[in-house]
Design a protein around this nucleic acid. Sequence first.
RNA 1: GUGGGUGUAGCUCAGCUGGUUAGAGCACCUGGUUGUGGCCCAGGAGGCCGUGGGUUCAAGUCCCAUCACUCACCCCA
Length: 420
Amino acid sequence: MSKEPIRSIKGTQDILPDQSSRWQTLESTIRNTMHTYDYFEIRTPAFENTSLFLHSVGEESDIVSKEMYTWIDQGGENLTLKPELTAPVTRAFIQNNLGGLNPINKLYYIDSLFRRERPQKGRYRQFHQFGVEVFGSEFPEIDVEVISLAMSIFNTLELEGLTLELNSIGSEDCRNNFRTAIKEYLKPNFDKLSETSQKRFKRNPLRILDTKSLEEKTLLKDGPQISDYWTSDDKDHFNEVCELLDKINIKFELSPNLVRGLDYYTRTTFEVTSNLLGAQNAICGGGRYDGLVEQLGGKPTPGIGFAAGMERLLLVNQKSDETIKSQIYVIGLGDSARSLIINIALELRQNNIRTSFDLLRRSIKSQMRDANKLGAKYVIIIGEEELAKNIATIKNLSNSDQEQIPLDSILSHIKSLPLK
RNA sequence: GUGGGUGUAGCUCAGCUGGUUAGAGCACCUGGUUGUGGCCCAGGAGGCCGUGGGUUCAAGUCCCAUCACUCACCCCA
């Protein structure tokens, strides 16, 4: 009976050292851009009360109805690993009265989320998103700032093949009117609709626009359009957003059927897709949610945000990353030298010089190999001969030059060398 | 939840219509240099051929089941 090793959970992944540097560069690019826009980071807990998501994302949404990791804890509380971040950040915004401290709050996050779906390319059960949530402004300038912030990060990452799709699903009134109109229009054809569309017809008619079926698409083409039901304010808002985007040279496509899956969206919705991915080609999605804060018990406060999937960004961003290289490798031959190099390595490290030495008591040959593999620039060799003369041999690995220096001048000597 | 594809060395894979000790490249280790890396050369280690069952004189190869991975549907980042 051989023991089966324990495996990671389906849809989760280990990020190993050969990949972690790509994550680090991605994260620092995100933070840098966020800071140039004066957005500040918010961190929320990994899990929340389940009701938070029921009341924001919507009970009929796929996320809530079939994808959440939910459990009852030992105290009887109903908890859920966060499947998205707008609701938790909004909850934190309300709970900490951020709106009372500042009329506008520009928040960003980089975080892990959890959804129990069947994994596939670009989709995992634990995945990472970065994004922003801005509370307090109803004006188009902020819609545009948020979009331009997202695009600016993608530009810095030199991503190619991206498309920005834009739509407005109008305010509350608009959507109510549209909802009755589209139901009216589709009612005679109800039997012809797909099963999912029939469900949506009852629960969330707006999302029928999302359909993939060609027949339904052509049927919808001649039906009522959301834009016909925009209030004049909705229309003005959307036009201003488009104009401002033009003004700062951000290209976009109008997608009248871009309805996002979550209940809380209003007015502006947008999505960025990549033609380099498979079926899961959305790398970023966002929009306005002017009613959400109030819905979750806060003072009426407009909001807008986006979230971008980091695993997908890394799939799109195939640029290779230079690996971090060591600088100094210290070799000690013999017992006394071996104990000496521990001190030398320590001193170099305290001076911010990347330093390694052999931990397997291997031969000098293997140690040289190891130094080479680590990308060290110089090797310091201390053996019997050197010890006797109180010197160290320093070898430049790129041109094989070797020189000998006094033992007590190692640090100053190394500091004078080009270590890059 | 549904469908397709794939499971052979640490990694990428070969193994033809079933046939004898299961291979390659890369990586790893040792040696070629009494204390010197990369390149080269020589050698070495490393495989319940995913797992269980079946057909057969004979199974990595065929059949069934099962598990895992993967892609896709649904939906989303």
